Structures are given as C-alpha cells and as structure tokens.
Amino acid sequence: MRFAWIDLREVPRPQLQAVVDAAVHARMAGVVSADAELLGTLPPTVTRVLVAEGTATTVPGRKPGDRSDKGDKVDKESKEAKDGKEPKAPGIDLLLRKFTTQEELDALAADNRPAGPGTPVAGYIGVRDDRTLRLSCSGAMALPYTVIHFADPTKIPLEIVLAAAESAEGKLVTVVDGLEEAAIVFDVLERGSDGILFTPRSADDVFALARLLEATTPQLELSTLTVESIRHVGLGDRVCVDTCSHFEEDEGILVGSYSSGFVLCCSETHPLPYMPTRPFRVNAGALHSYTLGPDNRTNYLSEVGSGSALLAVGADGRTRRVVVGRAKLESRPLLEIRTHAEDGRLVSLTVQDDWHVRVLGPGGKVLNVTELQKGDELLGYLATDKRHVGLPIGEFCKEV
C-alpha cells in the first residue's frame, strides 16, 4: 500500500503548524523533521522520523531561507543518533541517516539488528551516478526504509532500483518535488515506489496529496441483464474508444443509453475473421451513450477523447483506470439492444450493427451483438444515482 511522509524541514515557518495539523488529520504515514522536540508533540498515529545530522534531502530549486527547522540545527538527540545511540527524546519512531559508502550502509544495517541501539534506522542516499545507483539498490535490499533522491528527472534509475529490490522486505521512499511527480512515481513499473517524501508549501498541499493516495478504483457489483429485444435502428454515429492499455480477455468498458444502467462492452481482444485483434480498443456504442469513468462520474461517448480516463471493468467486477489515446467517431448502421435487470429496470444499449461488435455475459462469455436473442444474459452495472453533467445527484430524473 502506497504511503507518504511529510517533510517539515523546508515548510515556510508561517505554514508549519497548519501543515503539521493537516498531516495528522489526513493520516499521513509519517512526518520527517530534524527537530526531536517537535516530533515528540505528534501522536503515535504517524511515524515520527528524526533526521540525523548531515542528512539533507532538499530538492533543487528550493530556497534555503524557507527552512522551518534549519538543517544545521541538530539537538542532542540527533547527535546521539549520529553516534549510533538511541535518542532519548520521547516519540521518535525512526532515525533517518545518510549513507554514501558501503561501509556506512553496513553500519546502518547493523543498527537494525536485534543487538542494535533499539530505534529502527532508515537510510537516505542521493543518486547521481552509477556508483550511488548501485549503492541505493543495496540499501533497498538491506534497510527497513530507504529514502532516495534522484538527481536526474528521468525515472530509469527508479525503475532499476524497483527491479533490484523486487524481493526486498524493506520500503522504498522516493523524494518528489510536487504532486505531479508523486503521481508518476507511484506508477513506475506499475508497482511504483512504496512511498514518497514530500515537502508541502501549505496545508492544502497535504490534503491534495491525501486525495492522490486515495485515488483507487472500486470493485463493482455487476448484475445479470436479460435481453428482451434487439432491433435495427438505421444509420447513426458510433464511437470506438482506443485506450493506452491492453485489455484482458474478460474486460471492457461500461456503456449505456441511460445513466441508471450499463452493459459491459467487450474489447477487441478476441480473434476476428477479417482483421487483426486490437486489444486496446472497445467498439463502444452510439455517441449519445454514457460510459463510466473514475470517481463515479459518467461522460457521453461524444465527450471522450485523448487523455480522458475511463474504467476498464472485468467480468468479476474488478476495475482499473485506463487512459484514452483517441476516440473514433464514424457513421455506421446501428442496433438497439434492450435488456431488463432482475428488478425490472430497463437497460438499453445502442451499438454498431455488425457481427464483430461484442458484449460480455456471465462468466466473461463473449457474445456477438448480431447473434443475440431474446432471453440471452448479459453482464451490466446498475447505478443508483441520477446524473447532472456526469455527476451523481439526488433529484428526480426519468430517461426513456
């Protein structure tokens, strides 16, 4: 599970208390400071990380004068930490100490052994060349936490560390210089960094980070829909959605004529007789149709385009976020499929009238839309919310 540590050392002093309160309220995983007294005031719901003398994690571009608790201010507890002793100040959960050589790394690893000083020790390293990159890989394998500041903007060094530490029990924490980089770091090699070290400028930054950490996609409870009619409705405009991801064989996107119900439209992952598979594509439906995206928000297919985010949905209800590369709007003969749920609710879908357009049935069964018959069962999703500009709203709304 990904997490974030809030670094207080570069927070402007006027914002410091608000940032501390926000970090506690938003349940950030940890707070990092060189001030043991400050850390001692924090509740045990956060990991209190004391920075030992000489450990600097300042991101390039920050003004040294912005520090809230100066890097050269090291209290007695921090000096004892440097000497490998457990700090006497209460409320310290973890020491963060810099290492630049294998010998220093070995000393940090020794401190975490049962015979060590008692307080767990994390390591910090700046990666700027091949030697420090290899040393960071060793740290990620040996320490409970390894904080890495990558000097270069490329994420290749992070990929190398993630691959090297795949089997490690310790956690990798990457220093980031903003929320945008945090989102990228969490996605590198799909697994991403376990955690990030982030310096907010205000409490608003902390809450924005909390929203980023919570940005997961839900497990959906899919319903069985029974086909009651299929009819040819003539020429219209339909949308093919081409994503930047491969779909699994039992995945697609949810599409429906009404915001109250959707049918699981299959991707072109399965072989076709006259064309190659396109496992990134869903021949989704007519341009008026709703499709379900992240955060329980719908969009018309006519609104979907490059950079849009949708939900890929599996036959078991699992979901994941996918990014749209492009959408293709073309005029084609259309087919209307009307179904009903167990509670009698009408769920309608209008798609291209062609054999290669497919929907999914229970168990991930692939069904060609032109071969559907009354009584066939499809997979769908029933929404309880009405919609206004794609957002759920509690108002009367009837769609026919």
Rank of each mutant, 00 (worst) to 15 (best):
A341D: 15
T119A: 08
A110M: 05
G195S: 07
K79M: 13
A203T: 12
L360C: 03
A122T: 03
R113H: 10
D250Q: 14
G65N: 11
P279E: 13
E248T: 11
G380A: 05
R128V: 12
L287H: 13
I337Q: 11
P333G: 02
V347A: 05
A56Y: 10
G30C: 06
V127T: 06
K98W: 04
V255H: 06
L172R: 06
K76C: 08
V304D: 08
E37N: 14
G71E: 15
L133R: 05
Y300W: 12
G54S: 09
A164R: 10
A383H: 10
S138D: 15
A383S: 15
E181K: 07
R62E: 12
V369R: 11
A203L: 07
S245K: 10
V161M: 08
E249P: 02
V24T: 07
A140P: 04
E251F: 03
R128P: 03
P14E: 06
L162E: 01
S331F: 04
I196H: 08
F198I: 12
A164V: 04
D237I: 07
L38E: 05
A109M: 11
V255C: 05
E10I: 03
L329F: 04
S259C: 14
A312H: 02
V161R: 02
I160G: 01
S306F: 08
G363Q: 14
G344M: 09
R318P: 00
D194V: 02
A26G: 02
E395V: 15
A208H: 10
L287V: 15
I156S: 10
A203N: 09
T57M: 14
R113A: 14
V400G: 15
T100E: 15
G54L: 00
L378E: 11
G380R: 06
L179C: 03
E303C: 01
I156C: 00
V20Q: 09
S267G: 15
F280N: 13
A23W: 00
G380V: 01
G71K: 01
S78T: 09
L189S: 15
D353Q: 07
G192V: 00
V389S: 12
A142P: 04
G170H: 02
R297C: 03
R345G: 11
L189H: 06
P279C: 09
E377Y: 07
D343C: 10
Q102H: 09
L360Y: 01
A26I: 01
